[in-house]
Amino acid sequence: MSQSKLALLIKVQKEREEKLQAQFIKAQQLYQQAEQKYQGLANYRTEYIQQSLQQGAVGLGGRQYNQYVAFISKLDEALSQQGRVIQQSRNAAEQRRQSWLKMQTKRKALEKLVEQAQQRDLLLQNRQQQKMADEYAGQRFYQRLLADEVTN
């Protein structure tokens, strides 16, 4: 494969890599937001329980107590659901990170191929130049020998 084709392929790989990196960053942000939401819910639940305990110390009716328990149960369910969202977003972020790293590895491998091809081309070019220099030196030597024989 020619170097120009490889260079084009590397450019395409870089663009893909950048898109995958952006997707990973977005997934990571969604994961962090999900964790923050979970923490907010957990804090709210704790505060609500403390508030209900304070209210209970003063005195609660049966109906009011049942309402507190039902709301805490709803908060527990919301925390459970948010825990699942966290797990899903963590998995999605990790999957996108792996895709990004895989693309990065492919790009680096292509860059290494290009570098090796450039080194081979440079070595070949140096050998050709050396061969031309040797031929020129040989011709000059031969011309001097002929010139010396003609003058002698």
Rank of each mutant, 00 (worst) to 15 (best):
K106T: 11
Q119W: 07
T151W: 11
A78H: 01
A78D: 06
E17M: 11
G61Y: 00
L145P: 02
K106L: 11
E35A: 00
F141C: 11
V85I: 13
S4G: 02
Q36L: 06
L79P: 01
K108I: 08
E77S: 09
A147W: 10
Q87S: 12
Q55N: 09
G61P: 00
R107W: 07
I10P: 04
T151M: 12
A22D: 10
K74W: 03
A92S: 04
Y31L: 01
K112R: 12
Y142E: 15
K106V: 12
K19A: 15
A109G: 05
R127P: 02
V150K: 10
Y44E: 11
K5G: 04
I25G: 02
S52A: 10
Q104K: 13
Q21M: 13
L122T: 13
Q139W: 11
K74E: 11
N126H: 10
A57K: 13
K26V: 05
R144H: 14
L20F: 03
D76A: 01
N152S: 15
K102G: 06
A22H: 06
A92F: 03
M1V: 08
V12M: 13
Q87M: 08
R97F: 03
A42C: 02
E47W: 06
L53C: 06
M1Y: 05
E135S: 11
M103K: 11
V58N: 07
W100I: 00
R140Q: 15
G59I: 00
R140A: 15
F71L: 07
E17R: 09
K106R: 13
E18I: 07
S52R: 02
L20T: 02
N126C: 07
G62F: 02
R84A: 15
L124C: 07
A7I: 15
Q82Y: 01
Y31H: 04
Y48E: 05
D76C: 00
L123A: 15
E47T: 09
Q23N: 12
